[in-house]
């Protein structure tokens, strides 16, 4: 004799499979604030970011590109306002754009070789991906808002977009990010990409 006593249309269909049972369980991850699993991170305000950006620019003007890069990678904005995060991304991209292609690898190797260097390159990788995600790149100084990243409806609109200078400069920024990405992977390995994906501290 079958254990199932009654067949109903509900038990025969597989609609029950779509019930989200996690929502019904009291102590499931869905009903639990996952952020409490990690120690809290210090909050960074926009004014602090601007201040840091000023210092970094000063280093850049003084010709110390490596110091500028280190400076902005050692203070990533993990916990802060959207504007603060965007402003710091702009600072990082500005520094990256100002460094010559031939200087990239030696500079990364020097940073990687120092104490905490591996962490710095992980942060750099996070900013590279964030920069690529926001697509608009960083030639302008105004912070970008997500509304600028409207998805293009068809593949053809890309062709139309090419006429715009904004897209061209974005393309240039993207190529800078891509060449940095290549160099960072050469130095810090694929582990760097994996950490960017797994890390709960988002920039």
């Amino acid at each position: 004799m079958s254990i199932i006593q009654q067949h109903t249309s509900a038990s025969l269909s597989d609609a029950w499979r779509t019930i989200n049972i996690d929502a019904l369980l009291e102590d499931s991850t869905q009903n639990f604030d996952v952020s409490t699993l990690h120690p809290p991170l210090p909050e960074t305000s926009e004014s602090e970011v601007r201040q840091l950006a000023g210092q970094v620019r000063q280093l850049l003007r003084g010709g110390d590109a490596e110091g500028a890069l280190r400076g902005c990678l050692e203070f990533p904005v993990y916990n802060g306002e959207h504007l603060a995060k965007e402003a710091h991304l702009q600072t990082v991209i500005e520094v990256l754009q100002s460094i010559k292609a031939s200087e990239m690898t030696p500079m990364l190797q020097r940073i990687y070789g120092t104490q905490g260097g591996s962490e710095c390159l992980d942060v750099l990788m996070k900013y590279l991906y964030k920069g690529m995600a926001s697509a608009s790149g960083g030639s302008g100084s105004a912070p970008r808002t997500p509304s600028r990243m409207t998805p293009q409806q068809t593949g053809f609109s890309q062709m139309g977009g090419r006429a715009h200078t904004a897209t061209e400069s974005a393309g240039a920024a993207m190529s800078v990010l891509l060449s940095w990405h290549e160099k960072v992977v050469e130095v810090a390995g694929q582990g760097c990409i994996v950490r960017t994906m797994t890390d709960w501290r988002k920039v």
């Binding site: 699993l37 990690h38 962490e119 992980d122 994996v194 950490r195 797994t198 890390d199 709960w200 501290r201």
Partner: peptide
């Protein structure tokens, strides 16, 4: 224990 980047 968990480390800094806290992967599973």
């Amino acid at each position: 224990y968990l480390n800094n980047s806290a992967g599973w």
